[in-house]
Amino acid sequence: MTDTEYGRRRHPLRLRGRNVAWVPPLLLLVGIVLLDLNTTERFRIITWIVLVPGTAAAICGVWTTGAFAVLAVVTYVAVDSAWPGEYQAGLGDFVLVAVGGLLAVIACAVRLRKERQTLHIQDIAATTRRTVLRPLPPRWAGLEHAGVYLAADVEARVGGDFYDIQPGPHGTRLFVGDVQGKGLGAVETAAALLGTFREAGYHEEDLATVAERLEIRMLRHRRHTTALGREDGDRFATAVLIGFPEDAPESIEVVNFGHEPPLAVGPRGVRELPSGDGLPLGFGDLAGGLSPVHRVPLAADETLLLVTDGVTEARDRRGAFYPLVRELAPAVADRAGRPDPWLLVRLVRDGVLRHCGGRLVDDTTVFAVRRVRGAAAGEDGEDGEDGEEGRLRS
């Protein structure tokens, strides 16, 4: 982060690109002076000028705060001297204003140091997120998509939700999921699963083999964290693995690892795809087998919508869950034609935030995707790395 970027993010009070954080303390100083000079000796408030550098310390830089501290002392002396001797505030209040200005400068320096540390941590978190959730071009591997990720921890901005698209010689694969838990441990697990998906999704012909590789990777990761003595050795992940076969443009293959079922949204309404009977990744050994592969129809005019449980488990003040299908159906019906992925993502995002009043209790991901008409899966490049510079709208 450059000094210019830091300066722009540090000053929330800007007008037409200019920093105007100095205006409130200046107005406060002028107001105190005018009020003191236009009232009687029974209402001397010039000592209140100590609030000026204190206000500047909260919203301005160190040098600006120092300037207001000096200005407060000079103004105090000038205004107090304008009164007759018996009505002057005196030396005691002068020391109060001077010491108050000095403490304001120190407080401002401490605040800016903490702000810089916080912004640095947020930048690290954002970089970690971009590394795990690599940017994807809006049209990629024969698919048009849009996605948004909202972290429940707005300061950390990282969590266990993930998604990715991987083209390959056996068709395009989509992977969306949610790792149990929060923090860097969840991010580490998501990165491990995505790495396996990007390799297996490209090389393996059978989607069931990709699913098997993901289950094995989850078990290996759990054994590794357990061997390290960490407490998250029982972590698991819900996910949906989807294949877009090139030889069947009107259908998709779905493997559901205990995740929210995908929704097919089209001119005929909203329908829920079969959720399957699979367990989350990491629990395959309990079921005695892997999650089955289901081939389900997906019409050319339908858009696939996938969400994590941050959407379906969002509650309002009365404790009611967000009714995704009920909210989505009329909105889609009002717009005839093929649903746009970004439109669906925006509708769900705004609806969830409105429903819960902006108080997310879990990381939330909304991802929508549809086939590009007349596009082949391989026309955008054979490997996901070619689109690394693309930006995902969020």
Score class of each variant (00 low, 15 high):
T4M: 10
N19F: 02
V20A: 08
P24K: 05
P25M: 01
L26E: 07
L35P: 03
L37G: 03
N38Y: 08
F43D: 02
I46E: 00
W48V: 07
V52D: 03
A56V: 07
A57W: 05
W63T: 13
G66S: 11
F68N: 10
V74G: 07
Y76P: 03
D80Q: 05
Y87W: 15
V97T: 01
R113F: 08
K114W: 12
D123R: 15
T127H: 12
W140L: 14
L143T: 07
E144W: 05
G147W: 07
V148A: 13
Y149G: 03
A152M: 05
D161T: 00
P169C: 04
H170C: 07
F175W: 00
G177F: 05
V179Q: 06
V179Y: 03
K182H: 15
G183N: 10
A190W: 06
D206T: 11
A208C: 08
L214P: 00
L219N: 10
T225W: 12
T226A: 14
L228Y: 04
R230W: 12
V240D: 02
I242W: 02
F244V: 15
P245I: 04
D247K: 04
F257R: 02
F257T: 03
V265H: 09
G269F: 11
F283E: 09
G288P: 05
V296D: 06
V296Q: 03
P297G: 02
L304I: 09
L305G: 04
T308E: 00
D309K: 07
D316G: 03
R326N: 08
A329D: 14
G337A: 04
D340P: 01
D340A: 05
L347K: 04
L347F: 07
C356F: 01
V361L: 14
D363I: 03
A368Q: 02
R371Q: 01
A376S: 14
E382W: 11
D386M: 11
R393V: 13
